[in-house]
């Protein structure tokens, strides 16, 4: 979506009522974010909206980008925010071989997730925990499994893409195939048109 460089547009202030609505929307979309919402969007802080091409709106506080939204789709976190709160977003993990494709803006395909290096939710809807809790930092070498969610994610849900052997997330996008289907089929596109490290949105200078 942001393969090309984006030139910063003008910022406009977000109405406080809209700001409230965004907060609520965030908490419902990302329940794990609820404890941190006051840190991300402090009540008194003025939220800014910046219009960028392709009908995307970027929300920021001061110079810090927080979320972006395509028309009225789900709010997706900017990667810098994901890096600050890595455990608060539903995540999946890709294997090493897929990283370079994702970082050059390719669609994320299922084999990158189903191979040994990839991680998907385990399908146990009861399980609760923080995403990537074990394993992402140092667990892999010690043989511990990184935890990548219990509940299967549905088509259309926002998801953060982490990478094998890396601490930080490398992409954000919307699933175009439920994670259950990914496991069953094992091929086809999974996340199309996302925001990835080093793309236009990432490089956008927000001052």
């Amino acid at each position: 979506m942001f393969k090309k460089d984006i030139s910063p547009g003008s910022k406009s202030k977000v109405k406080s009522s809209v700001q409230r609505a965004i907060r609520n929307q965030l908490v419902t979309t990302y329940p794990l974010l609820a404890p941190h919402i006051d840190e991300i969007i402090p009540k008194k802080e003025q939220l800014d909206a910046m219009k960028i091409p392709d009908r995307v709106t970027l929300y920021l506080i001061g110079p810090t980008p927080l979320f972006y939204q395509h028309m009225t789709d789900a709010l997706l976190p900017h990667l810098r925010l994901v890096h600050r709160f890595p455990t608060c977003f539903p995540s999946i993990r890709i294997d090493r071989g897929a990283i370079r494709f994702v970082l050059s803006g390719a669609t994320l395909m299922a084999p990158g997730l189903t191979s040994t290096g990839g991680r998907l939710p385990n399908g146990d809807a009861e399980e609760k925990g923080a995403y990537g809790e074990h394993g992402r930092k140092d667990g892999e070498e010690k043989g511990k499994e990184g935890w990548y969610g219990g509940r299967e994610l549905e088509k259309g849900e926002p998801v953060v893409v982490c990478a094998e052997g890396k601490e930080e997330a490398c992409a954000v996008g919307i699933l175009s195939m439920g994670t259950k289907e990914v496991k069953e089929k094992g091929k086809g596109p999974v996340v199309e048109e996302g925001h990835y490290l080093g793309d236009g949105l990432w490089r956008l200078v927000t001052e």
Binding site: H36, E39, I40, R80, H83, R84, F85, P86, I99, R100, L103, K166, E167, E168, C170, L197, G198, W202, R203
Partner: peptide
Amino acid sequence: PQSRHVVYCGACSLPPEYCEF
């Protein structure tokens, strides 16, 4: 303050572990 502090590479702006890409 619960947010993590992430270092970004001064040359390519990615987190340093992704510099290789």
